[in-house]
Each structure stands twice: as C-alpha cells, then as structure tokens.
Amino acid sequence: MVFLTIANLVRVRGPDEFWRKRRIFRLAAHYIGRRRNCYSIAVRNVHRALVYATKARKLKKQDMIDLWNTRITAACEQHNITQFSLKEGLDRANIMLDRKSLSDLACWEPRTFECLAAVAKEKLQLDGFVNYADKKLPTGTELNLRDVMLEHWLKEEKH
C-alpha cells in the first residue's frame, strides 16, 4: 500500500529559515541566557530593542540640545550674561552660531566665547535692549570691554 496523503500533511518550513533566524541571532548576541539562543524568545527581545532604537533617535537629539543649553548657560553665567541675551545680541550682530558651535567654543575655546559674550553685550547696549527676565545673580565677573576688545574701546574713548 502506498500512502500518498501523509506526505501532504508534512509541512516544509522553507530552506531560508537558518539565515532568517541568523539575522535575529546576530543582533541578540550580547543578551543573557535563553534570549540569545532560543529564537522565539530572542525575536521578541530583538523587536523591542529595535523599537527602542527607533524612538531613541528623536530623544538623542533632544538630549543633545538640552546638554548644549546647559553648557551655554553655564558659560554665560561666568560672564554675567543670560543665554537669552547672548542669543539676542549675536542675532542682532548677524553672528549665526548654533547651539552646538557655541557649546563647543565654550568648552574648547573659552576666550573666543568671552569675546562673543562681550560682542553680544555691546550690541544690546547700543540697541538699548533690556532683558527684564535677567535676575542679575552675581555668578561671574563683569566683562570689561577693554580687556576683550582693546581697539574698539580705544576708539570709543577717543570720542
């Protein structure tokens, strides 16, 4: 007797299975326990990891912006100016530096940042702009324009 219908009941999973699963196991290589060896457990955790990675791309940008803001505020406080005043002064003086550049300058090129703060302060003074949100806490040293922009100060003194 030849039983032909039994062959129909055997389901073939597919010749590609090993490589499909290998794609998941490569991403789960550093997991602990059964999560790195058993497919059905690994695939759940790998999918969660990929979802976290997707969401984190936006969060990373927000985190970086927050960090830059904190750093710029800290550097501004050393020169007795607020971050808002600095941004306003630099915008009015047509100096288009973004948060990343400003925070990098504050960390690596502190004298340049001092000059930028002096420029912003001078521009706001010329424009007659007053920042009423400035609480005027004594956190730093007053910028003496003479120390920072000697030629400009000499010209002013002449007039």
């Binding site: 904190t70 800290a74 550097a75 050393q78 504050a106």
Partner: peptide, 14 residues
Amino acid sequence: IIKKYLMGQHKPIY
C-alpha cells in the same frame, strides 16, 4: 545656587 555648584552645572564641561 548651591545645587548648581554641587551638580557641576556652572561648568561648560558639564
């Protein structure tokens, strides 16, 4: 004011 100094938020390398 004090908490800023304790956390290091007064430094541009924070």
